[in-house]
């Protein structure tokens, strides 16, 4: 007989209803396991199958995002599996019941959004050449030299560009922070995930202020129209705003 386990997505208030069609990892139906005032969103998972395909990641994310759009949810990092459903209560929900209740009440009516901006490469490179005479000179030198002889110049030029992009990223991140912070409960800067990232911010926002957030992001987006490709993602579960015990110590 195949061994199976219980995959956990997140913790929600006890009184939620799950859409019968909700599918989790490996297309398994999603269930809730209730304990006191809280419930864990789970699904059964066979243990013969490795976990972590793109489909698995999307299933985890989509279930939590759909949930977060409706109710507060404490998202669990991808990949948590317990031995069985009893273990979910005995080892997870029961011992930390009050802590989870408190966090859920703090998250009530709030959801996370992520703002991600990326520099339009040609545009930002053009700006840097215009702003930095050394960069412009290096570019001219490189064009005049055979490729073999220009390696040092190219490295130096790339270094200047990288530093300039970092400075622009800091400035744009600060500008976006100033724009969205007033309409947010909390905000957090995420590290860049790409060398051309302009902005990478997570914000926790009251559901009633979602429209204000969109307007704030769009107003800066219009200003940056040709320079930065901007995306606003969410609502999603508050991944960036919950800290578990051990993480606090990091």
């Amino acid at each position: 007989m195949d061994q199976s386990g219980t995959y956990i997505y997140g913790v929600v208030p006890e009184d939620i209803e799950i859409d019968e069609k909700a599918q989790g990892v490996a297309d398994a139906p999603v269930l809730s396991i209730k304990h006191g005032k809280i419930a864990a969103l789970v699904s059964d998972i066979g243990m013969t199958r490795p976990l972590g395909t793109p489909q698995d990641l999307r299933a985890h994310e989509q279930l939590l995002n759909a949930t977060a759009a409706e109710v507060p949810v404490l998202p669990i990092r991808f990949g948590a599996v317990l031995a069985d459903r009893d273990a979910v209560i005995e080892e997870f929900l029961a011992p930390f019941h009050d802590e989870f209740v408190a966090a859920l009440s703090e998250l009530d009516g709030r959801a996370q959004y992520v703002i991600k901006g990326r520099f339009v490469e040609d545009r930002v490179l053009g700006e840097i050449l215009a702003e930095n005479p050394e960069a412009a000179q290096l570019r001219d030198d490189i064009r005049a030299l055979p490729e073999d002889a220009s390696r040092d110049h190219r490295i130096r030029l790339g270094e200047i560009i990288n530093q300039s992009i970092e400075a622009k990223r800091d400035a744009d991140t600060a500008a976006m922070w100033d724009e969205v912070e007033p309409v947010s409960v909390m905000a957090a800067v995420r590290p860049p995930s790409h060398e051309l990232d302009a902005v990478h911010l997570a914000v926790l926002v009251e559901n009633s202020r979602q429209h204000e957030l969109e307007q704030a992001v769009e107003s800066l987006g219009r200003k940056w129209a040709d320079q930065v490709e901007l995306r606003l993602m969410g609502p999603m579960a508050p991944y960036d705003f919950i800290v578990s015990q051990d993480q606090d110590a990091e």
């Binding site: 990223r169 800091d170 800067v189 987006g221 219009r222 129209a225 490709e229 508050p238 800290v243």
Partner: peptide, 12 residues
């Protein structure tokens, strides 16, 4: 509930 590492540092 707190930011995990927070520091301020085209159309959408």
């Amino acid at each position: 509930v707190q930011p995990v590492g927070s520091r301020p540092g085209g159309g959408v």
